[in-house]
Computed example of a mutant assay.
Amino acid sequence: MTLRPPLRIPGITEIPPSAPGMRIGLFGGSFNPIHDGHLLVMEETLRRLELDALWVLVTPGNPLKNNAGLPPLDTRVQAARARIAHPRIRVTGFEAAKGFTYSWQTIDFLTSTLPGRRFVWIMGADSLANFHRWQRWRDIAARVPIAVYVRPGAARRALASRAATMLDYAQIDEADAAILPLCAPPAWIYLQGRQSSLSSSAIRAAKDPN
C-alpha cells in the first residue's frame, strides 16, 4: 500500500460525523479551484440519489496528474467550504491525515471502519473514461456503488471506456437512481442532466495564460 506522510491539520482533516444507515456520497478531487460545475454535480447527485450527506474529499494530490504548484490542502478545503452553503455537504481533507494516495485506500478505510453506512462514489464522466487507469479500480467497483455524472464532450468516451464495458452488466437504469445507494456493488449509474463547461484546468489557464 502506497502511503504519503500523514498530514493532520485541526479543522481540516477530520472525518465528518455519520451514523449507520446514512446514504453518503463521496466526491473526491483536487478542487484546484472548486467551481460551479462541481457544485452542480453535488446538488444533482444529492437530490437524485436521495443522499443524507455528501462528503467532498479534497485530495492531497492526484497520482495521475502533475501536482506541481498545487495549493496547500487547507487552502483548498477552506475555499471549497466558502463556496458551499448546503447543510448536507461537508468538506474534508481527511485522506491527508491517513496518508492515503489512492481512492481505493479511502474507500477501503471508510467501508471497513464505518460499517452500516451506504457509501456511493461519485465521479464525472471524464473520470469514468480513465477509470481503468486508477490503481485497483476493480476493487473500487466491487466495494461501493458508483454514480457517474455527465460532462460536456465526455459521454461517448466514458460509455465506450474499458471500465464501462467491463461493468456493463452492473449498470442500473437512470430512472432507478434513488435505489443506487442500496444496491450491492458492483452497481453503477450514468446520470444525464444539467451540465457546466467549466473546468479547473481552464480556470487556472485563464488566470495564468503563460
Rank of each mutant, 00 (worst) to 15 (best):
E50A: 14
N66W: 01
M42Q: 15
P152R: 11
Y149R: 15
M166K: 08
E95A: 07
I24M: 11
A155W: 06
Y169H: 05
P10Q: 04
N62L: 03
R4C: 12
L167I: 05
Y169G: 07
P181G: 07
V144R: 07
R81I: 07
Q171S: 11
D108P: 07
D36K: 12
V56L: 13
L114F: 11
I12Y: 01
S196G: 12
T165D: 02
T45P: 04
I203R: 03
R83G: 15
F31I: 06
G28R: 01
L40R: 11
S18E: 02
F31D: 03
S196Q: 05
R136I: 07
A80K: 00
Q171W: 02
V58S: 05
A164K: 00
R47T: 10
L128I: 09
N32R: 05
A97S: 08
S161R: 02
I89K: 07
P6C: 09
A96G: 09
F119G: 10
R194I: 06
A206P: 00
V91H: 10
F94E: 02
V150M: 12
A129Q: 02
L114H: 13
L191F: 11
A170P: 00
P185C: 08
A178N: 05
Q105D: 08
Y149N: 11
L73G: 07
P5F: 12
A97W: 00
P72K: 02
L73T: 03
A160T: 09
L57G: 12
A170K: 02
A202T: 08
K207Y: 06
R83I: 09
D168V: 03
G193L: 04
L7V: 06
P16F: 03
S200T: 09
D139W: 00
P209D: 07
T106M: 05
R204F: 10
H86W: 08
A184I: 05
T45A: 11
A142E: 01
N67G: 12
T113S: 11
T165W: 00
W104C: 13
S200Y: 07
R143K: 13
V41D: 02
F27L: 08
L180C: 12
F31Q: 04
A142Y: 00
A164T: 08
M1I: 09
R156Q: 12
S161F: 01
L46G: 15
L70F: 10
D108M: 04
P20L: 10
A163S: 08
D36E: 09
A96W: 00
L180G: 14
D108W: 00
I189Q: 09
Q105Y: 05
A141G: 14
I172E: 02
E43C: 15
R157V: 06
Q171M: 14
D36L: 15
D208P: 00
